[in-house]
Every structure is written in structure tokens, then in C-alpha cells.
């Protein structure tokens, strides 16, 4: 990904994040999260993780954030009332974040800068040997394309089958839990 696009979407994402924290109205915050996640999805795509980028949009911005907005509307929340800001907690929060960022920069400063390995035709074609010849993946790889979705599916249903099943059960449990929680007590 060209640096220009990277920085564009990175700034979009970070600005969205800052806006989430800064906006007083939860609806504005939620919209900022959407903006931030769009930037994030673009970064995913830039990292050739097309599938993850797409479900980031679909699941997060599409489902989760809509759910958030729905709840905000449901609860009919007012703006956060202006209160005399307590200086000590705010200062402590900022100090913590700044300490974290300093540490982050400190760590990254020691790391050598690595650039992404190229995913050109030669590289992809050489990876095709590990897959069924004549299969979709192998064909795509030989053709110099990255069959991202197929690779994800392949990994998921070969190496991660059991966790996938468990994940399904988890989602079921969550669904049941949500129903139980939301139910008004009939007593």
C-alpha cells in the first residue's frame, strides 16, 4: 500500500478514535467509531487481509455499531451532563496513556524497520505447491492472485474446526443469555 493511502486511513482511524472519546453525545461517538472502523478496514485491505477487512465492515460497522445505536436510541440518553471535571482522575488518565505511548515508542524505536515481503506472481506461484493441484486455491495462486477468502476458509475448516464449533456454541449461549437478560421479570 502506498504510504500516502496508509497515512490517510491511519489518520482517519485515529481521528475517529479521538472523536469517540471527545464527543459528548453518544450518537456522535458511535458514528465516530464507524468512521474509525472504516479506516481500520481500509488498513486491513492494505495488508492484503481482504476478508478480515470486509467482516470488519460487515460485523462491526454493520451489525455491532447498529446495535449500539439501537441501544442508545432505546435508552433515550441525554448528553453527558457537564460536570466540574475532577482534575485528579483526568490527569491520572492522561498520564497513564502518555506513559503507555512513551513505552510504545520506546519499544518500536528499538525494532528494525521491516518492509512487507512482496506478494508478486513468483512468490504466490511458489506457494501453490502446498495445495491440491487443480483446486481453486492452487489455480488462483498460480495465476498470481491471492485467494484470500479461500485460504481463510481452508485454514478455518482444516486447522481450526474444533474452535469454530465451540465458537458456534458460544454464540448460541450469548444469544440465549441476551434473551434471558432482556426478558422482563414476570414477577
Amino acid at each position: 500500500m502506498p504510504s500516502f493511502l496508509f497515512w490517510l486511513f491511519a489518520v482517519l482511524m485515529l481521528a475517529g478514535g479521538v472523536a469517540v472519546v471527545a464527543f459528548r453525545n453518544p450518537v456522535s461517538s458511535a458514528m465516530s467509531v464507524v468512521a474509525s472502523f472504516v479506516g481500520l478496514a481500509a488498513l486491513f485491505v492494505g495488508l492484503s487481509a481482504f476478508f478480515v477487512g470486509i467482516i470488519q465492515i460487515l460485523v462491526y460497522t454493520g451489525a455491532v455499531m447498529v446495535l449500539f445505536l439501537f441501544i442508545i436510541m432505546l435508552l433515550d440518553l441525554k448528553d453527558e451532563q457537564k460536570r466540574a471535571p475532577k482534575l485528579a482522575p483526568v490527569a491520572a488518565g492522561f498520564a497513564l496513556v502518555i506513559a503507555f505511548v512513551i513505552q510504545l515508542v520506546g519499544v518500536l524505536a528499538k525494532m528494525p524497520a521491516t518492509t512487507a515481503p512482496k506478494l508478486d506472481q513468483a512468490a504466490l506461484a511458489s506457494a501453490a505447491g502446498g495445495f491440491n493441484e487443480g483446486g481453486k486455491i492452487a489455480t488462483a495462486l498460480t495465476a498470481g492472485r491471492l485467494p484470500d477468502v479461500q485460504l481463510i476458509g481452508h485454514t478455518l475448516f482444516t486447522q481450526y474446526n474444533l474452535p469454530l464449533q465451540i465458537l458456534g456454541v458460544l454464540l448460541l449461549v450469548a444469544t440465549v443469555g441476551v434473551v434471558v437478560l432482556s426478558k422482563k421479570h414476570a414477577d
Partner: peptide, 14 residues
């Protein structure tokens, strides 16, 4: 090209 450090920095900032 953006390096790994750039991504990690952005991720850490988020």
C-alpha cells in the same frame, strides 16, 4: 512503503 513499525505505532495509538 509503510513498515511494520508504522502499523504497530498506529495500532498502539488506537
Amino acid at each position: 512503503m509503510a513498515t511494520l513499525n508504522d502499523y504497530l505505532l498506529v495500532s498502539g495509538l488506537l
